[in-house]
Computed example of a mutant assay.
Amino acid sequence: MQPRTIVFHAPKDELFDLRHSVKLLADNLLPAGNPDASFMAAVVAELGRRGFAAEGRLVKVGADHQMDAPEVLRALVDAVSLLCGAEGAVKP
């Protein structure tokens, strides 16, 4: 079983190119029909509804590599809460 993974990446990260995160996720797809695939899609869709730039399992947030801005920290807390079911996310 593959781990549940959401990648948070600042589009203007000066150390790691955004394309690397995109490739990492593309190389580690969850197969269709896998309960984790639909669960992760639901979590990322909810992050998108909350205003974060979310697509696939990638959330583009922050201005640089440090990712210490309040909106980044809020996105991380929201994702962890959803993944743990603390905000009503349906676990498979």
Rank of each mutant, 00 (worst) to 15 (best):
D64A: 14
M67F: 01
V80K: 09
E55Q: 11
Q66I: 06
V43H: 08
A53P: 01
L58A: 08
A42I: 08
Q66W: 15
E55G: 06
H65Q: 01
A79F: 03
L83Y: 02
A69D: 13
A54Y: 01
A45L: 12
D64G: 14
R50N: 10
V77C: 06
R74E: 13
A63T: 15
L47I: 02
V43C: 14
E55Y: 01
R74V: 03
A45W: 11
G56L: 09
D68I: 11
F52D: 08
G48K: 13
D64S: 14
A79Y: 07
F39Y: 15
E46Y: 04
R57S: 04
E71M: 06
V77S: 06
M40L: 15
D68W: 08
V59C: 09
L73E: 02
L82H: 08
L76P: 01
L73I: 05
A42T: 12
V59F: 04
G48A: 13
F52T: 04
A54R: 00
Q66C: 06
L76V: 10
H65V: 02
F39P: 00
V80S: 11
L58P: 00
R57F: 07
V44H: 03
D68H: 10
A42M: 14
L83G: 02
A79I: 07
V44R: 05
M40A: 05
L73V: 10
A45G: 15
L76I: 05
C84W: 12
G51L: 08
K60A: 00
R57E: 01
D68F: 04
L82V: 08
V43K: 12
Q66K: 12
M40W: 07
V43Y: 11
V72I: 04
Q66M: 13
A53V: 09
R49Q: 07
K60T: 07
E55F: 03
R50Y: 00
G51F: 09
L58F: 08
V59L: 04
A54L: 01
E55V: 00
V77G: 01
R50E: 12
R50D: 10
F52I: 04
S81V: 00
G48Q: 04
L47H: 09
L58G: 06
L83N: 03
R49P: 00
L47R: 12
D68S: 14
A42N: 13
Q66T: 13
V59A: 07
F39H: 12
G48Y: 07
A54T: 03
R50P: 10
A54H: 00
V77R: 09
G62C: 07
S81Y: 15
A79R: 05
L73S: 02
R49L: 06
E46A: 15
F39R: 05
R74S: 07
M67V: 08
L73Q: 07
G56M: 04
A41F: 13
V80R: 12
V61G: 10
M67P: 06
D78V: 02
R50M: 13
V77P: 00
A41H: 14
